[in-house]
Amino acid sequence: MSVPILECVDVHAAYGRIEVLRGVDLKVPRGAVVALLGPNGGGKSTLLKVISGQMEKTSGHVHMAGVNVHGASADDLARLGLTTIPEGRSVFPNLTVEENLLLMSYAGVAPDKVFDTAYSYFPRLHERRYQLAGTMSGGEQQMLAMARALTSDPALLLLDELSMGLAPLIVDELYETVAKIAESGVSILCVEQFARTALRVSDYAAVMTGGRVVATGEPNEINEIMADVILGGAA
C-alpha cells in the first residue's frame, strides 16, 4: 500500500484546559475523497485547523505524504501544496473578485493561469470580476472560494463546511466541482454537516464525536448510521 497523503496519529489538541481532540487517528489515501462527518462540537473543524497549521496540537503526529509536519506554519503549508478552504466565506469581502484570484497565486500558480482556470470553470466569476466579493451572494462567494481549490493545484485539499447557509441546488453545484477536482487526482478531506450530500462524492467516510473518530467505512455503511448520530437515537 502506498503512503497515505495524510495521516493523523493520536492527535490531541485543546483550547486551554478543555481538550477538544482526544487522540484522533485518520488516514486519507492518495487520490481519495474522505468525508469527515459528525455533530457540532465533535472536533471536526479543530482537526482541520491542526492539519492546516492554524492551531498547535498538544501531542500526536501529522504526516503529509509520509513527512512529519511539525511546527510548519499555515502559509508554509499553503505554498507546499495544501489548500484549505475554511468554514464560512473564505474570501476577502473588500477586494474585487479579480483581486481575490490574484492573491490565490501565492500558492504557486501564475496569476494568468489562475484567472484562466477560474473563469473558464465559473463564467459567473468573469462577469463579476470587478465586483467586490462581499457584495456577491453566498453561493457566488463560495464559488470564488472553490476557485482557489481549482486553481492552486493542491496535493491535498481540506474543505470545511462548504454548504453552510447555502441553498441545496448551489450546494449541489459546489459538490460537482469537488467531484471534478477529485477526478483530477487531488486528495480531499471534507468536513460536512450534510452527511448525505458529502457521502455522494466520497470514497471513504469517518465520523467524529467527542474528539475521536468513532466510525470509518464506505459511504453506504456510514450513511445508515448518520441519522442516529445527528438527529438523536429516536429519529
Binding site: Q54, N94, E99, L103, G108
Partner: peptide, 24 residues
C-alpha cells in the same frame, strides 16, 4: 501589485491570507 492587494487583504483577515500562502 499582488503584495499591495495582500496589504488590503490583511486588513480583512490576516489568517485567511496565511491559508492563501501569503506572508503577512
Amino acid at each position: 501589485t499582488r503584495i499591495g492587494t495582500a496589504m488590503r487583504a490583511s486588513v480583512d483577515n490576516p489568517d485567511l491570507l496565511h491559508l492563501y500562502g501569503g506572508r503577512s
